[in-house]
Amino acid sequence: MMFRLLGPLEVYGPDGASLQITQHKQRALLSLLLLTPGNWVSADLIHATLWVGNSPRNAFGSMKTYVSQLRRKLADANDPENRIESRVGGYRVFADRQELDVFLFEEVARRGRDALRDGDPGRAVEHLKAALELWRGEPFEELPEDVRKAENVRLEEQRWAVREDLIDAHVALGQPHVVIPTLRALTMEDPTREHLWYRLLVALCHSGRRAEALAAYQTAYRFLVDELGIEPGAELRQLHQQMLAGEAVTVPFHRDLRKIR
Results as ranks from 00 to 15, higher is better:
residue 255 R to T: 06
residue 74 L to F: 15
residue 228 L to H: 15
residue 257 L to G: 02
residue 237 R to I: 01
residue 256 D to I: 05
residue 191 P to C: 05
residue 245 A to E: 15
residue 225 V to Q: 10
residue 149 K to F: 06
residue 8 P to N: 06
residue 219 T to R: 15
residue 244 L to E: 15
residue 208 G to N: 14
residue 152 N to E: 09
residue 147 V to Q: 07
residue 56 P to F: 01
residue 51 W to P: 04
residue 147 V to Y: 06
residue 152 N to F: 00
residue 216 A to S: 15
residue 131 A to S: 11
residue 18 S to I: 11
residue 93 V to E: 00
residue 25 K to A: 08
residue 11 V to C: 12
residue 181 P to D: 04
residue 154 R to P: 00
residue 213 A to S: 13
residue 40 W to Q: 02
residue 54 N to E: 13
residue 78 N to F: 13
residue 112 G to I: 03
residue 249 V to L: 10
residue 43 A to W: 05
residue 256 D to L: 08
residue 201 L to C: 11
residue 73 K to N: 10
residue 159 R to A: 02
residue 200 L to Y: 00
residue 215 A to Y: 05
residue 24 H to D: 15
residue 215 A to C: 04
residue 135 W to F: 11
residue 224 L to E: 01
residue 60 F to G: 00
residue 23 Q to E: 15
residue 11 V to E: 03
residue 88 V to Y: 14
residue 149 K to R: 15
residue 229 G to V: 03
residue 104 L to I: 08
residue 133 E to T: 09
residue 11 V to A: 12
residue 223 F to A: 07
residue 143 L to W: 00
residue 104 L to V: 09
residue 208 G to W: 01
residue 65 T to G: 13
residue 199 R to S: 08
residue 220 A to W: 00
residue 227 E to R: 15
residue 167 I to V: 14
residue 106 E to A: 13
residue 38 G to C: 04
residue 186 L to S: 07
residue 221 Y to S: 10
residue 116 L to V: 07
residue 58 N to G: 02
residue 58 N to A: 04
residue 117 R to I: 08
residue 237 R to G: 04
residue 194 E to W: 01
residue 32 L to G: 12
residue 24 H to C: 08
residue 124 A to Q: 00
residue 55 S to I: 02
residue 191 P to N: 05
residue 123 R to H: 03
residue 8 P to I: 03
residue 104 L to M: 07
residue 40 W to S: 03
residue 30 L to P: 06
residue 100 L to Y: 06
residue 102 V to M: 00
residue 200 L to W: 01
residue 145 E to A: 13
residue 95 A to S: 09
residue 31 S to D: 10
residue 28 A to D: 06
residue 118 D to M: 08
residue 158 Q to E: 11
residue 189 E to W: 11
residue 91 Y to T: 00
residue 130 A to H: 10
residue 148 R to G: 15
residue 224 L to S: 01
residue 17 A to P: 03
residue 245 A to C: 11
residue 191 P to W: 05
residue 41 V to F: 10
residue 221 Y to V: 06
residue 177 H to S: 14
residue 39 N to M: 12
residue 246 G to C: 05
residue 179 V to T: 13
residue 81 E to F: 14
residue 95 A to M: 09
residue 207 S to M: 11
residue 85 E to A: 14
residue 158 Q to P: 00
residue 176 P to T: 09
residue 162 V to M: 01
residue 93 V to I: 13
residue 234 A to C: 11
residue 251 V to E: 03
residue 249 V to C: 08
residue 137 G to Q: 04
residue 54 N to W: 09
residue 119 G to Y: 10
residue 235 E to C: 02
residue 233 G to A: 10
residue 71 R to L: 05
residue 254 H to F: 08
residue 122 G to C: 07
residue 257 L to V: 11
residue 169 A to C: 11
residue 191 P to A: 04
residue 223 F to R: 08
residue 226 D to H: 15
residue 245 A to K: 12
residue 38 G to M: 06
residue 97 R to P: 05
residue 46 I to G: 00
residue 115 A to D: 04
residue 206 H to C: 07
residue 23 Q to C: 08
residue 46 I to E: 02
